[in-house]
């Protein structure tokens, strides 16, 4: 039984990447997704991957300012996982999917299209970061991903002061930007 409002709390938590909300989402929904995947020629590793991707899709949706979920989280996650797994099976040319006829499925095409763009940009950025080299990668990740202060980064990477570290950071950023757009424009 779903208490009204519980979904809302969970989604707000997910938008903040709150670990308790994420844990609850796993507890409530993972087994259902795993059953789906195992019933359809997948293994538990596939299930973990698919579920993680669906969580990212839901997250991307949840951080949008005017986001409304028109169904239960369970239904949404199930629909996304089903679609993602179907795509994977299609790639392997095994297209029959066994699901319970009474399962509720909603259309998630639009969300997945958006997600595909995000994934592609994510990969380009990951690639660019791997090419930018050290110490650039470390400095940029510390600042932009781990949200460390410049002073802390200066100490960590042995710069005499925060300003020197900042200059270095911008130089690195210029390189990263070049790498990113080089691949981005190739698409």
């Amino acid at each position: 039984m779903n208490i009204p409002g519980q979904d809302k709390i969970l989604l707000d938590g997910l938008a903040k990447q709150d670990s308790i909300a994420i844990e609850s989402l796993y507890r409530l929904n993972f087994q259902m997704v795993q059953n789906l995947i195992l019933n359809n020629k997948g293994n538990s590793e596939d299930a973990a991957d698919i579920f993680q991707e669906a969580m990212i899709v839901l997250y991307e949706k949840s951080i949008h300012p005017d986001f409304i979920l028109h169904c239960q989280i369970k239904t949404y996650l199930y629909s996304v996982c089903r679609r993602l797994w179907l795509k994977k099976l299609e790639k392997q040319k095994r297209i029959v999917i066994h699901t319970n006829e009474f399962d509720q499925v909603i259309s998630v095409e639009e969300d997945l299209e958006k997600h595909e763009i995000t994934t592609s940009n994510f990969k380009i950025m990951e690639n660019a970061l791997s090419k930018v080299g050290e110490p650039c990668k470390g400095i940029l990740e510390a600042f932009y991903i781990n949200k460390k202060q410049m002073q802390e980064i200066a100490t960590l990477f042995k710069y005499t002061n925060a300003d020197n570290a900042k200059t270095q950071k911008y130089k690195c950023l210029t390189r990263l930007k070049k790498l990113f757009f080089a691949e981005y424009k190739n698409l």
């Binding site: 670990s19 994420i22 844990e23 796993y26 993680q52 969580m55 951080i63 995000t118 994510f122 991903i145």
Partner: peptide, 22 residues
């Protein structure tokens, strides 16, 4: 884009951690 990358990266990390703990 970097911001989005960072967010997804952190989320993936949390998701992995949660999955492994559970």
């Amino acid at each position: 884009e970097i911001e989005k990358y960072g967010r997804t990266k952190r989320l993936k990390h949390t998701l992995n951690e949660t999955f492994l703990t559970l």
